[in-house]
Design a protein around this nucleic acid. Sequence first.
DNA 1: TGAATTTACGAAAACGATTAAGTAAACAAC
DNA 2: GTTGTTTACTTAATCGTTTTCGTAAATTCA
Lengths: 342, 342
Amino acid sequence: MVSMKDISVACGVSVATVSKALNDHKDIGEETKQRIRQTAKEMGYFPNSSARALKTNKSYNIGVLFVDEVPQSGLTHDYFANILDSFKIAVEAKGYDITFINCNHMRKGRLSYLEHSKFRGVDGVLIACVNFQDPEVVELAKSDIPVVTIDYPFKNRLAVMSDNAKGIQDLLKYIYSMGHRRIAYIHGQTNNDNVTGSRVKFFVKTAKELGLKIPKEYIIPGKYRDIPNSAKNAGRLLNMKERPTCIIFSDDYSAIGGMNEIKARGLNIPDDISIAGYDGSNIAAQIEPQLTTIVQDTRMIGRIAADNLINMIENPESTKPEHIVIEGLLRKGKSVRQIGEK
Amino acid sequence: MVSMKDISVACGVSVATVSKALNDHKDIGEETKQRIRQTAKEMGYFPNSSARALKTNKSYNIGVLFVDEVPQSGLTHDYFANILDSFKIAVEAKGYDITFINCNHMRKGRLSYLEHSKFRGVDGVLIACVNFQDPEVVELAKSDIPVVTIDYPFKNRLAVMSDNAKGIQDLLKYIYSMGHRRIAYIHGQTNNDNVTGSRVKFFVKTAKELGLKIPKEYIIPGKYRDIPNSAKNAGRLLNMKERPTCIIFSDDYSAIGGMNEIKARGLNIPDDISIAGYDGSNIAAQIEPQLTTIVQDTRMIGRIAADNLINMIENPESTKPEHIVIEGLLRKGKSVRQIGEK
DNA sequence: TGAATTTACGAAAACGATTAAGTAAACAAC
DNA sequence: GTTGTTTACTTAATCGTTTTCGTAAATTCA
């Protein structure tokens, strides 16, 4: 590990000079600067992030808090994995690295999320896919560390959110425009999250605006990404006397569960019954029939989150914490049929 | 940020004593030790990882190199995302954190993967889902940093690999046992990777052992996780005069492409033609008919990689770099039918 | 009681960088 | 020729830890 010390002796200058030369300070002669940089390169020098972070209090490291301790979550969650993927690319392009925040013990004792973030000295944190009611999450979000949350708005904090209101609205309006009047919605479980609440609220609101009257039994609390569960709930709807002509599922995976149940009963999609999903996962575009869904713009969400977080880190004064809403896009697919004349 | 200095003045001792007390050295009196720990807790102290890493040369941080610069890769790759998920849980349980390694420029210049790893001072690196021919990857793998690779064996380096030989063998034998004799294999593209090579080799070998003669045209180079591509290749097989009775796809996603093509031709799975996938993704278990596939044990792969890497980090002498092979499991599903009498 | 050992702590250097403050030399101005 | 201003560096402190070495006091041993 060649350090500035090594370069300084090799060049016959002080370490201070080396540091300044490498950091392009103006009070070093052009000739010396070049000589130092040259030897640095020749000796294979590169900085030590710990030393630099210790001195400057800046780590060029961003913490990511995904739900942890539970396997099969966060990273394996299609929607969040895509957001993280895009977030990662954006921050790395600006010279930042990503470290996961967790609540595990180190050699001694357990650290809270906030403590862990400070322990690692991260410059900012992305919070996604967690229980936002968790006191530790709240503590971190309200701390003095720059924070951006996904799909949940904290007051006076940066948030990037998928436009669930408009999404469900677009979806419902489209289904309505295809002639459907009996439309059911199997939504995800809501633990006070912003997402489900928003979707259900705007589903009801839009239905009212369209003059639809949706029976209570048409709105079913289900579970996200639970195929057997959604199959069961779809079954309940299919058993009704007044069966819906279209079922909206909480997400694309759940829609697949519904498809299975529907097909198992010998019904055809969309001839006998129409369905729609939510998310716009890759798989949804490829199954037969292609699923009608709202494509959430994960690429944009991740990028915007990254750009704004870094902006907040680098210009704390000039940035004010907004709640940014990113629209999704209706993918019509083939799973909702036209009813009646056009 | 309360430091040891603060605690030392609060307790009227030296920083050295505080450090030793907190690290449970034996040359501190029990009473003082307790007093110091108590005040540390009261003052909300926790260590500074940069300072500690700087001094001890140990970061309790593990680098993860996934393919980067390309969106929609690595993190969004089901198989690797699951491995990373499990790896993350395992290392965090032992007090290590995870930082992604990439080749991006920091404030100045681009860093190679190795340089980046040293810059961050990671204690070890997980390499997965990359082009193992990349000189920079090779450089990192052969460096003095403890490294574990997934699904690719470097000489004298730790590797954890899914048992592709046994996997394809089990799959083929099962299909054979169901009475199939005309079996095709649309495999993934091979850029000198270990995985595809191994699978194709053992497909051929096992076929020979079973006395099958597989026409050349039955073994088709396709692309991993490319649904349209696999649909096209499945179409080629379906057009043949001597059509196979079963098609093995490179992975579960590709199998879905095949399913689409087959259904589009009005054929039924498995009555008219049987298919199988590879991976054991969640989705494969839930589609209709349930897909016959090899479930790769991602949970185990991640955990074993983590345990062995940490072991190598903490006991460099007593550990020798093995190539560990993790078996998958045949999931029979419903997509391969019995031909002839049982 | 005197010497040897143990116990409990402190002083200080070090890890690798950054940066404020200081200084010698060169140059310019009048 | 004195003074003032740049220019191009160096000195030294500092970030928060860890750790080696030293040492005074307490304890044990003979």
